[in-house]
Design a binder for these strands. Sequence first.
DNA 1: GCGGGAGATGCAAGCGCTTGCGACGGCGTG
DNA 2: CACGCCGTCGCAAGCGCTTGCATCTCCCGC
Lengths: 343, 343
Amino acid sequence: MVGIDDVARRAGVSTATVSRALSGRGHVASATRERVEEAAAELGYVVSASASSLATGRMRNIGVVVPFLNRWFYTSVLEGAQRRLMQYGYDLTLYNLSGSSNERSTVFEQFLLRQRVDAVIAVSLELSAEEVDSLHALGKPLVGVGGPIRGVPTVSIDDVGVTRLATEHLLSLGHTVIGHIGGDVDAEMSFHMPTNRRLGWEDALRDAGVEPRPELYFPAVFTMESGYVAAKQMLGDPRLRPTAVVVASDEMAIGVILAARDMGLDVPRDLSVVGIDDHELAPFFGLTTVAQFPEQQGERAVELLMRELEQTREAEPANLQLPFELVVRSSTARPRPEREPRG
Amino acid sequence: MVGIDDVARRAGVSTATVSRALSGRGHVASATRERVEEAAAELGYVVSASASSLATGRMRNIGVVVPFLNRWFYTSVLEGAQRRLMQYGYDLTLYNLSGSSNERSTVFEQFLLRQRVDAVIAVSLELSAEEVDSLHALGKPLVGVGGPIRGVPTVSIDDVGVTRLATEHLLSLGHTVIGHIGGDVDAEMSFHMPTNRRLGWEDALRDAGVEPRPELYFPAVFTMESGYVAAKQMLGDPRLRPTAVVVASDEMAIGVILAARDMGLDVPRDLSVVGIDDHELAPFFGLTTVAQFPEQQGERAVELLMRELEQTREAEPANLQLPFELVVRSSTARPRPEREPRG
DNA sequence: GCGGGAGATGCAAGCGCTTGCGACGGCGTG
DNA sequence: CACGCCGTCGCAAGCGCTTGCATCTCCCGC
């Protein structure tokens, strides 16, 4: 295994110079630097991560904690974070909490605290005060993505804004009886998000002079099937007869479209549906949606972290609100002139 | 930061004893061990990963390389691997190749060779001989999941077996005009898999005395949309008129179901479809499929690695074939007595 | 022409563990 | 009863880097 002194010998300098030349820290004459780089390349030298870490106290590795893996949002965030981290020369070590419930404490106690990561990104997780504290006690920066964490910088979207935008789109088309299928507050790991999205729907309606009807809200759990079931209930109730529905995620929205189809309703003629996400399947189903950009969220989270890590100054816990935008496809249209939504 | 000698002092022993007591290597009187563990717990001591790695040469971290993240198969493998690794006390660092094409070489040259991982798991990747060699040169065990890699232990399923089983299911129901929608050999990173799956379809047909017709095979790219498009072509061609189709993945198969529906065909009355995977959406669509168990594949890959890592003996490159099984749902049925499949 | 400063490099002391080797008793065996 | 072995533990030498400090050279300005 070729080490730093092999390189030093070959380049005719000291190991200190090799270290400085390769890391870019400290002054090295450019001629010397080239000679060192050449020697390193010829020998195929790469620094030992552990030795370097031991000496510097930095692992160049950050931990990303996600509640699930099998969901578009998380993998997208992961993808963005990974890409950006690689550019910074950092590794990403993955912690997935979806296993047994005690996996969570194992992750925290055994792994995150084990000095294997310089910082952690928590995706859509509501961390307890102790969890945050234990990380901070170790001097490990922490940023959240998705759910807000008290006292921790977070990148996210404006959750009330997205459903507000979706609802406004529907209102502008002339809809007034607009349902909402959203996350079940009890069932999710992050309870703010579903609540906020519901709020956006209500706010937009009120601003338009329409009083939101509680019976037009149906809870679901962010899966296609759950959206399907909720839609069947909503559309099957003759007292409701919504002409449009805003759905808190694209996966659920697709379930809604399928449900409508199965009930003989035409989308968008009989029912307009708009989702949130711009999931990869949205174009295929012609789903109008409010796009959020999870990859970008991952990237920004990394940037926040890097700023805290590379500079010495404490980062102000600035919560970054990322942009979102309406993508109109074929699942929304003006309501039918007749007030009867059924075929 | 509490270090090993803080623990040693508190327990009244040497650091050597602390190390041995906590790591379980070497003989330590059980009374001493308890005293040490107690002291460590009281101080909240956790070993420094870098110091430990430097001394032992082991990182207790393994790299997992995936071609994409946004696909059910990969995230499932990842999930399984992660869970098992955590049980062994290992970290998982994630490398995703889906970015730019030069990301691949960066991953190999800059990261995997950087002594940050003890071993690597390559998921559905055809590694070049140099890539394999460079890893072996560093003494890093390597196991593949999904695609076979020459000279490397691999865990996978019998790709010809799965489509054979799917086809036999259809044959046993009485179908004889059975189409196949499979991966496009040119478009995929792993070229064996689509070929083998096509082979399974052909073999089963031949064994039943039916000559497979090449025009009943349609290539696609493992997405729902691509399956949809291929199905439209297949079902739209009046010369073909298949009564059933075996599809190389569930996502594509769902596309096929949707296409059939859009063409006014009833599944399974007018068309039986069977997929491969047992994707999380399969139950929702009532899709009959051949289940493979990617999480299990991830777990087994880890086990293979651990055997190679923990024991000294060289692992024989035993390729592990994992089980698969037919899951019958509502997308398959006997063909209609009439030979006319159209409504 | 000389003092001072800045740039370039080397020396060597860690970073916090692990582990081979040796010391020391206590106990089983011939 | 003496010998040797084994279980238990400490000593100290690394593991392969990084970096503060010292040294030396060269150049600049007065």
